[in-house]
Amino acid sequence: MSDILIVTEHRRGEIRPVSYELIGCGADLASKTGGDLHVAVISGEVDEMAAAFNRDGVDVIHTVADGDEFNHDIYRQAIAHLVEDVDPRFVITPQSVNGMDYAPAVATDMGVPLVTDAVGISLDGEQLTVTREMYGSKVETTVAVAGERAVITIRAGEWPPIESGGSAEIEVVDIDIDESAIGSTVTGFAEMAAGDVDISEADILVSIGRGIDEEENLDIVHELANTLGATVSASRPIVDAGWLPKNRQVGQSGKTVSPDVYIAIGISGAVQHVAGMKGAKTIIAINNDSNAPIFDIADYGIVDDLFDVVPALTEALA
């Protein structure tokens, strides 16, 4: 019972990069428990993906061929089968939208603790400790987990991906999926409307967040963007409120952008937003909260009221 089981992720024929980070995380833990690292590949082109997951540190790759795309009922049954077979101490999945759709059920089925959105994991003797954020990333907590086993979901981008090849054995797992226990059916996918502009093509983005307060205040941002020849984008709350269309949203559930200059105005810099813009060459932040996480990744910053700075900047540029 010292083995680690990680559950990889794919979508529409593509492996999700977090899968390779899971291997890094799992291999590190396996080296501490002295157990083997098992990799689960469930649904889709499992043979092809198993070959890709044959990387350093992986001992066994289990393929379950049932289903094409992610379905949480198939994942739940397949993982229950593998847990029975492998008897893992820790089951690790991504804290992705799909991870959130099955990991809690796996923990419930196993009757073990669940710790989600880990940014660090340590094992000191028998004591598992997980580092995670609370209060909108304002604090980082360490959480001691009682008991021997746990299901842990990890945040993308926190563990280095494993790139080098390995020598894992591949096991084809044949399970009888209980069709009567499948209560949901994936019927397709939809992509967000392309809209009038592709923000991922812009050289300069003027991006606006919750700090703008009211829809009519967006005018000062449009004026700045016009003067600067920039494109307007936004963080999630602005799109949720319907003030800008979804195709303007930067972040995990929106677009990933890498402009020459990204000007974040009234954006706190939640991890989901940063995931979409950290590739910008130069990041400038304007925010009246000096503790806002956006200043951690910004190259230049102004700690001041955006309603003073933005009009002043437009005027200075004119």
């Binding site: 979508r11 795309e69 992610f70 992705s96 939208v97 799909n98 759709d101 209560g183 949901s184 059916t185 994936v186 019927t187 397709g188 996918f189 939809a190 992509e191 967000m192 979804k246 195709n247 949203q249 995990q252 559930s253 929106g254 677009k255 990933t256």
Partner: peptide, 14 residues
């Protein structure tokens, strides 16, 4: 279901 990267999954649930 709102997946990452502007993709939505269409699902029927009992």
């Amino acid at each position: 279901r709102e997946l990452e990267g502007g993709i939505e999954e269409l699902t029927e649930v009992q």
